[in-house]
Computed example of a mutant assay.
Amino acid sequence: MSTPHPRRSTRYPRLLRWAALAAVLGLAALVVPASAVKPTEVALVKVHRGSGVDVSPDVVWILAVGSDARPGENMTRTRGDALQLIGMNTRTGAAAAIGVPRDSYVSIPGHGYDKINAALYFGGPDLLGQAVGNLVGIQPDYVFVSRFPFFIDMVRSIGGIEVRNPVAFADTYLKPKGFRAGRIHLSGYDAMAFARTRHDLIRGDFDRSANQQRVLRGIQAKVRARADRPGFIERGVMNVMEHLYTDLPPAELFRLAQAMAQVEPAKITTCVVQGSIGEAGGASIVRPFTSQARMLGNEARKDATLEHC
Score class of each variant (00 low, 15 high):
Ala131Thr: 15
Val215Ile: 05
Pro149Ser: 08
Ala69Pro: 05
Val237His: 10
Leu296Met: 11
Arg226Pro: 04
Thr92Pro: 10
Pro265Gln: 08
Leu296Gly: 06
Pro230His: 06
Glu73Asp: 03
Asp247Arg: 00
Gly178Arg: 05
Ala257Arg: 03
Arg91Thr: 15
Pro57Arg: 05
Ala22Lys: 07
Tyr173Arg: 01
Pro71Cys: 11
Asp205Leu: 09
Ile62Asn: 07
Glu307Asn: 02
Gln258Trp: 07
Gly66Val: 11
Gly278Gln: 11
Ala221His: 09
Val59Asp: 01
Thr78Pro: 01
Ile202Cys: 12
Gly178Cys: 00
Arg294Val: 11
Val65Met: 02
Ala293Lys: 11
Asn239Ile: 06
Asp58Lys: 08
Phe206Pro: 02
Leu44Thr: 11
Asn134Met: 01
Arg226Glu: 14
Ala94Met: 06
Glu41Lys: 11
Asp126Asn: 13
Leu174Asp: 00
Ser157Asn: 03
Val136Asp: 02
Gly72Arg: 07
Tyr105Ala: 03
Leu135Tyr: 06
Ala94His: 02
Ala82Asp: 06
Phe169Gly: 00
Val24Cys: 06
Ile158Trp: 09
Arg255Glu: 12
Val45Ala: 14
Asp171Thr: 00
Arg70Gln: 13
Asp207Cys: 00
Leu16Tyr: 15
Val65His: 02
Asp171Glu: 05
Arg180Asn: 00
Asp81Gln: 09
Asp228Tyr: 09
Met295Phe: 05
Phe122Leu: 04
Asn134Ile: 08
Val132Pro: 13
Leu135Trp: 13
